Amino acid sequence: MTLDNNYRQDLLVALRLHEISGERVGEVIAEVEAHVAETGEDPVQAFGAPREYARQVAAQLDPATGKPSTAWTMGSSLVVATLTLLGLNLFADGISAGAGEVAYTVRDLVTTLLLLFLAGGGVLVIFRAYAAGVRRAGVIGIGVTAFALIMATEVLGDLLLDDRTSLLAMPRWSAIAAGAVMLLAAAAMLVRAIRRGRVVYPVNRSA
């Protein structure tokens, strides 16, 4: 008997959401495939639902065996989100500024910080909720709530905050350069995370 592809994919996603290394993900999936092939047993009966089994695997790991700490994961995700958002804003504003300066008002700064907090926090909460076994309707509700708060922030910012007085200004080339550096740094961190998360199946080294 071969492992059902739906179970394999669901288990893969669930393991990734627990920030388990790609090498360990490959080992877990290979173990499940080998058990099913040898015994013919249904994987749900043998290991439980994919998300339940992923939680069991994650609970047995520490940073030395393939799972970084929650604080490290959240911190690195926030850094990537910050660099990406600020980098895009600076680069795009610098390109569109023409020959003038890039200026930011109180509204720009406040709404950007709130957007970063709500978007980054919303994504992290959605991932954690899914990994913890929250039902799909609950996960969708979290996403809708975060999106509604982001929209409300933009509307309230237009109504309540000063969007005329320049609080910070810089030459357009400075904004372009700073934005490019931030985007490159975010890309480097993402490449490192992708390499770490690449699924590596165990091989028969005696062959």
Rank of each mutant, 00 (worst) to 15 (best):
G66S: 15
R192V: 07
Y104E: 07
L78G: 07
V32N: 02
G66L: 13
Q60T: 13
I126S: 04
T84S: 15
V125S: 01
E52R: 08
T70N: 12
P43Y: 03
P202F: 04
I194W: 14
V199G: 12
A58T: 08
D42Q: 02
V102L: 05
S76V: 11
G26M: 08
V199F: 15
N6Y: 13
E52W: 09
P171T: 04
A37K: 07
T82P: 01
A119R: 05
D158P: 03
L156A: 03
A49V: 04
D162L: 07
E19T: 10
I150S: 01
Y53R: 00
E33R: 01
D162W: 11
T165E: 13
E33T: 02
A193Q: 15
A92G: 05
A71Q: 12
S77E: 13
G100I: 00
L168S: 06
R51N: 11
N89V: 15
V36K: 01
V200N: 08
L12E: 14
F127C: 09
T70W: 13
G22N: 07
V44M: 05
Y53K: 00
L161T: 06
D158Y: 12
T2K: 05
V191D: 11
L3E: 08
R16I: 05
Y7D: 05
P43N: 02
V102Y: 11
P50H: 11
G143K: 01
A178K: 10
G138A: 04
L168I: 14
E27N: 14
V144Q: 04
A146H: 06
R107D: 03
L88N: 09
F147D: 06
A146P: 02
G94V: 01
R8Q: 09
Q45H: 10
I126C: 08
M151R: 02
R24Q: 14
A58H: 12
L149P: 01
I176Q: 14
V110E: 01
G87D: 08
L160D: 00
Y104A: 00
D42H: 08
S166Q: 10
A132Y: 08
M74Q: 13
L190Y: 10
G157C: 05
E27K: 10
P63G: 10
E19W: 15
G143A: 03
L115R: 03
V199A: 11
E38Q: 07
R107C: 05
P50G: 07
G66Q: 14
V144A: 13
R172Y: 10
T153P: 04
G75V: 11
D62P: 11
T165I: 08
L190P: 06
V200K: 12
G157W: 06
R195A: 09
I150E: 07
E31H: 05
A207S: 15
R195P: 11
V199Q: 11
R8C: 03
R24E: 15
T145L: 15
R107S: 06
A129E: 03
I142H: 00
A30H: 09
W72E: 14
V144W: 09
T145A: 15
Y201W: 13
E33I: 02
A46N: 03
N5K: 15
G121F: 12
I176L: 15
R195M: 14
G133A: 07
A146Y: 05
D158K: 10
